[in-house]
Amino acid sequence: MTIAAPRLPRLTHRVRKWADGWTRIGTQAQFYAKTLRSVVDVFIHYKTELLRLIAQMGLGTGALAVVGGTVVIVAFLTITTGALASVIGYAEFSDVGVEALTGFASAYFNVRLAAPLTASIALAATIGAGATAQLGAMRINEEIDALEVMGIRSIAYLASTRLVAGVIVVVPLYCVAVLSAFVAARLCTILIYGQSSGVYDHYFNTFLYPMSLIWSFLLALSMAVVIMLVHTYYGYTATGGPAGVGEAVGRAVRTSLVTSGLLTVLLSLAIYGQSGGFNFSG
C-alpha cells in the first residue's frame, strides 16, 4: 500500500497533461479554421489594413527598414546557401572526376531544398516573429478586447489580414531568393573554381525543369500559410505580460521552423517521389 499510493497522483497528472495537450491542439485547429474562413472578409472589409501590412512586411519597419527590409535578408541568406551548394557540389563531384556537374547541383538542390528552406527560415525570423510580437503586445494591452467591443472581428482584422499579406509578399520574396541562389552558385563556380561558363550553363539548363520551379513556388506558398497561421495564433493567444510575449515569439519560431521542415519533406516526397524525377544518361 505504501508503494502503490504515490503512483495514482502521478498517473492522474500524466492523464491531465495528455488531455491538456489535446485541448491545445483542438484550440489551435479551431483558430486556424476561423482564420482561413475569414480570408474572404479581408478583401471585403479590411483592404486598407491589408495594403498597409503588405508594405510593412515587404519593406520592414524601424531598424529592419534601415537594412532594406525582408527582401535584403532573404537575398543575403539565399546567396550564402547558393554559394554553399556550389562549394559542396564542386568538391564532391571533383572527387569522382565529374566536377562539370556542379551546375546540376545548383539546379537540383537550390530549387527543391535550399531555397524553400532558407526562405522559410527568413519568413519565420522576420515576418512571422514580427506578427507574433505585434499581436502579443496588442493582447496584453487589451487592444484586441477593445476591437471586439467596437464590433470589429478581431481574427479577420488581425490574423487573416496578416495571413493574406504574408502569402502575397512571399511571391516576390521567393523570386529574389531563387535568383540569388542561382547567381551566387554560378559566380562561385565560375570565378572561384574557374569552371567554364558554357559547361556550367549546359548542365544547369539541362537539369533545371520548369515544373520543378512551379512546384517550388507552391511549396513556398504552402510554408508561408503554415508559418503565418502558427505565428498569428501564438501572438493572438499570448499571456503573461512582456515576458509572455517573448515566450510566445520563441515558441512560434520553434514551431514554425519544425512544421515548415516537416512540410518540405512530406511535400517533396509527394511531388518528386523517391527517385527525384530525373535520370542520368551518357
Rank of each mutant, 00 (worst) to 15 (best):
M1Q: 09
T2K: 12
I3L: 13
I3H: 10
A5S: 12
A5G: 05
K17T: 12
K17E: 11
W18I: 09
W18P: 00
G21T: 04
T23A: 13
R24A: 15
I25N: 07
A29V: 08
F31A: 10
A33E: 07
L36E: 10
L36W: 03
V39F: 12
V40E: 04
D41T: 07
D41W: 13
F43Q: 00
I44Q: 09
H45S: 08
T48E: 15
T48Q: 15
R52C: 03
L53D: 15
M57W: 00
G58A: 15
G60F: 06
T61C: 02
A63I: 15
L64Q: 11
V66A: 11
G69H: 06
V71T: 08
V74Y: 06
T80G: 11
T80K: 06
T81Q: 10
G82P: 08
A83L: 14
A85I: 11
I88A: 13
V96M: 12
G97Q: 06
E99K: 13
A100W: 02
T102E: 05
Y108W: 14
N110F: 05
V111S: 09
R112I: 10
L113G: 01
L113Q: 09
L113Y: 11
A114I: 14
A115D: 08
A124V: 13
A124E: 11
A124D: 09
T126D: 06
T132F: 03
Q134G: 04
Q134F: 01
L135A: 04
L135C: 01
A137M: 04
A137F: 02
N141H: 04
E142L: 06
I144G: 09
I144W: 01
D145L: 07
L147T: 11
R153K: 13
S154N: 08
I155G: 02
A156P: 04
A156Q: 08
A156H: 03
S160P: 03
S160N: 06
T161Q: 04
T161N: 07
R162V: 01
L163V: 12
A165Q: 10
A165H: 14
V167L: 11
V171R: 03
P172I: 08
C175G: 15
V176S: 09
V178F: 03
A181K: 08
F182P: 07
L191T: 05
L191M: 07
Y193G: 05
Q195W: 03
H202F: 14
N205K: 04
T206D: 05
L208M: 07
P210M: 02
M211V: 05
L213K: 00
F217K: 01
L218M: 15
L218G: 14
L219G: 05
L221S: 03
V226N: 01
H231Y: 00
Y233C: 03
G235H: 03
T237F: 10
G240L: 10
G241E: 04
A252I: 02
A252D: 09
R254P: 00
R254I: 04
S260H: 06
V265P: 02
L266N: 00
L266P: 00
S268P: 01
S268I: 02
S268Y: 03
L269H: 08
Y272K: 01
G273I: 05
G277F: 01
G277L: 06
F278S: 02
S281K: 13
S281G: 14
